[in-house]
């Protein structure tokens, strides 16, 4: 079985993002970029399935600028077998990515597509679900445990108030949550080996996908600065304050 793992190049999770002065977006000049942490978990899960003998090949895909090649190399160094870069400098929305992934899934026919549940830059949490809808495949989102058994996959999902278990017939779509696993680091020898693993260069046009944005960003602004707290002497005052603020 083949596993397809989409990976996105995003602002590094340690970086404090700054909004551009003109409010058009986040300033990415001279900012460290790395693989979306949820996608690292997806790559790790795919590698574990391969190590268990469940999967035979792992294909990593990234839709983004030429630099996204570095992100793909990271996936290859972790243990993916080959990679596809769908290169574009334009901003791509989840729907466009899902369409491209559908086209690749049609070509590659993976038993599983494992995606991050969301990317930490736009927090959309849509691509996996859209891909499931476009391909008509079952989906197990927010996975905290993935078990493949024959032609079905059992996914424990993190939902409000606990865990839900779903059993999907493969081919299927899985999106990862934080607790699914702890991704490995790529070792130095594997970083070197990754250099000779195949990496195909494509464009959205190769898949016949129109990536023009469907949404218009009106304005991006910093979250309001947190106000200083106040100390209250007792619970009654606390309740009064809360009422006064209209929170309860």
């Amino acid at each position: 079985m083949k596993i397809l793992v989409p990976v996105k190049r995003v602002i590094d999770y340690n970086v404090k993002p700054r909004v551009k002065a003109d409010g058009t977006g986040v300033d990415l000049a001279n900012v460290k970029m790395s693989m979306n942490p949820f996608d690292e978990i997806a790559v790790e899960e795919a590698i574990r399935l391969k190590e268990k003998g469940v999967a035979t090949e792992i294909v990593a895909v990234s839709v983004g600028p030429a630099k996204a090649q570095e992100t793909l190399r990271t996936a290859l160094a972790m243990g993916a077998d080959r990679a596809i870069l769908v290169q574009t400098d334009d901003e791509v929305e989840p729907l466009a990515v899902a369409k491209i992934l559908k086209a690749i899934a049609d070509e590659e026919t993976p038993g599983l597509v494992i995606l991050g549940k969301q990317a930490i830059d736009d927090d959309s949490n849509q691509t996996g679900q859209m891909l499931a809808a476009l391909t008509g495949r079952p989906q197990g989102t927010f996975a905290s445990e993935v078990t493949v058994d024959g032609d079905s996959v059992t996914v424990k999902r993190e939902v409000d108030g606990g865990l839900e278990t779903v059993k999907l017939t493969m081919p299927a779509i899985v999106t990862t949550d934080l607790r699914l696993n702890e991704p490995r680091y790529a070792s130095l020898p594997n970083i070197m080996k990754a250099k000779s693993k195949p990496l195909a260069n494509k464009t959205p046009a190769d898949y016949g996908v129109d990536i023009a944005p469907r949404l218009k960003t009106l304005k991006v602004s910093e979250p309001p600065v947190r106000q200083a707290g106040v100390k209250v002497p007792d619970v009654d005052t606390l309740v009064a304050k809360i009422k006064e603020l209209g929170i309860a």
Binding site: S34, Q69, E70, R73, T74, A77, Y185, A186, L188, I191, M192, K195
Partner: peptide, 14 residues
């Protein structure tokens, strides 16, 4: 060296 800039940066990043 077999190590190119991309690999060197990956090592530093790691």
């Amino acid at each position: 060296s077999d190590i190119d800039r991309e690999a060197a940066e990956a090592i530093l990043d790691l």
